[in-house]
C-alpha cells in the first residue's frame, strides 16, 4: 500500500512537471515551488547531523576543546549578511574560507597547466599525434590576443577554429545524447516502476 502511494505521488509530481510542455500552469508552478522548498528543507537536518554535531557540538561540549568557540562565533557572523548595517561582518567567515585560494594558485598551475603541457609534448609518431599537436598549438595561438589574425599567422590560427568546431560538434552530440538519456530515465520510471509495463 505504502509503495503504491509512494509511486503515485512520484508519478503525479513527474506529470505536473511535464505539463509545462503544454503550457505554464498552476500544477507546474506548484511542483516547482515544492521542489525548491523540499530540497532546501532536506539539507537542514543533514547539515545538523553531519556537520554541526561532529564539528561544533561534540568538540566543544563533549570533548571540551574550547578553542573551537572562536570559529563557531565566526560562523554565526554569516547571519549578519541580511542586516542593513552589519552585513560587513559576514565577510569574516567568507574570508577565512577564501584563504585556501593560496593553495589554488600553485596547485592549478601544476595540474591544469604544467601537467597538460607535458601531455601536449608527447612525441609525434603518427598522423593523429601530428594533428593533435597542430590543433593544440593553433588553438592556443587563437586565444593569444596580442597579435592580430592576419596573413600566414591568421591562417594558422584559423585552423584552430576548425578544430574547435569539430570539438564543439562532439560536445553537441554528447549533450543531445545526455538530455535524451535523462528523458529515457524518466519514461523508464513511469512505464516500469509505476505502470509495470517494462519487465
Amino acid at each position: 500500500m505504502l509503495e503504491f502511494i509512494s509511486n503515485l505521488v512520484a508519478v503525479l509530481l513527474t506529470l505536473f512537471i511535464f505539463s509545462f510542455l503544454y503550457k505554464d500552469n498552476p500544477f507546474y508552478r506548484f511542483a516547482e515551488h515544492l521542489l525548491v522548498g523540499v530540497s532546501m528543507g532536506y539539507a537542514i537536518p543533514l547539515v545538523y547531523i553531519n556537520a554541526f554535531i561532529p564539528f561544533v557540538y561534540r568538540p566543544i561540549f563533549l570533548e571540551g576543546n574550547f578553542w573551537l568557540i572562536i570559529p563557531s562565533c565566526i560562523g554565526i557572523l554569516y547571519i549578519f549578511r541580511f542586516t542593513r548595517n552589519l552585513s560587513w561582518l559576514s565577510r569574516y567567515p567568507i574570508a577565512f574560507g577564501m584563504g585556501i585560494v593560496g593553495m589554488g594558485v600553485p596547485m592549478s598551475m601544476h595540474s591544469s597547466v604544467l601537467v597538460q603541457m607535458r601531455n601536449a609534448m608527447l612525441p609525434i609518431d603518427n598522423i593523429n599525434t601530428l594533428l593533435i599537436f597542430i590543433g593544440t598549438v593553433s588553438i592556443l595561438l587563437y586565444f593569444y590576443f596580442s597579435k592580430p589574425h592576419k596573413g600566414l599567422y591568421g591562417k594558422f590560427t584559423n585552423i584552430g577554429i576548425w578544430f574547435m568546431m569539430v570539438g564543439f560538434g562532439a560536445s553537441f552530440g554528447y549533450t543531445v545524447m545526455a538530455r535524451i538519456s535523462l528523458l529515457i530515465g524518466r519514461v523508464q520510471f513511469i512505464l516500469g516502476d509505476f505502470l509495470g509495463l517494462i519487465k
Binding site: 592549478s108 598551475m109 595540474s111 591544469s112 597547466v113 597538460q116 603541457m117 601531455n119 601536449a120 593523429n128 594533428l131 593533435i132 599537436f133 597542430i134 590543433g135 593544440t136 598549438v137 593553433s138 588553438i139 592556443l140 587563437y142 586565444f143 584552430g160 578544430f163 574547435m164 569539430v166 570539438g167 564543439f168 562532439a170 560536445s171
Partner: peptide
Amino acid sequence: VPNLAAKRGIATGVG
C-alpha cells in the same frame, strides 16, 4: 583527435 586537441587547447587557457 580533433576533440582532444580542442579540449586541451581550451583547457590550458581555462586553467
